[in-house]
Simulated assay, not measured.
Amino acid sequence: MAVLMSVWDTEFRSAGLFDDRIYLASTTAVAAVATVAQWNLPTMTAATIDQALREMFEAELLYQSPVALQFRGQYGPDRQVRLNCWGRRLADRITQRRGVIRDHAESARTRIRAHLSVHRDVYDQHMTVLAHLQQQPPGAAWRSAEQLPVGVLC
């Protein structure tokens, strides 16, 4: 999971969509990244993704918090997530070794890059909404994120 999240974050920045680290808007967004990257593990379900994220959080490899009020406009059950520096370092170490994970990471990188190229306009529009939150009604950022193929927040 760390490798997949790291590749998404790196490619999102490389595409010029955001200069800093990006949050995935929810566990649903993590599953959407896996779909885009065709990172299909037989055991990858909503429950196993949730469990993996919880374990990564407990191991202090990622930030996980309720979606900020500024984005959602009201409390909800979703949690935004992103790797911290330790999670990124782990992902880098894993992908430096030759083998299956490195090959999967490169395939995922290619698919994510193509996805971001095809959907660049909708992500760019969403990032504009996030950049001008003060001018948006409550919850606009969350509604915008939900319309993306992979929901992101900053």
Rank of each mutant, 00 (worst) to 15 (best):
T110I: 04
T27R: 12
L62T: 00
D19P: 01
A31W: 07
G151D: 12
M44V: 10
V129L: 01
E11C: 08
L17W: 00
V3R: 09
I101V: 15
Q96H: 11
L17C: 02
A37I: 10
A25Y: 06
P137W: 03
T45K: 10
Y123M: 06
T48H: 05
Q51P: 00
A68N: 08
V81K: 04
Q96S: 13
M5C: 04
E106R: 13
A46D: 15
E11W: 03
L69D: 13
G16Y: 08
R72Q: 14
T43E: 15
L116K: 02
Q147P: 00
R79D: 03
D121P: 01
A31D: 08
E106I: 06
A91E: 03
A25H: 06
G87Y: 08
D9F: 00
Q80A: 08
A140P: 00
R21Y: 11
R79W: 05
W86K: 09
V152H: 01
A108V: 10
R72K: 14
L62E: 03
Q96W: 10
Q80R: 10
C154K: 01
I101Y: 08
R109E: 10
V129R: 04
D78S: 14
Y63C: 02
A52D: 09
A91Q: 05
T27Q: 15
R98M: 08
G76Q: 15
D124Y: 02
A34C: 14
V122T: 12
L130I: 09
P137Y: 11
D19N: 09
Q96D: 14
G16P: 01
L69S: 12
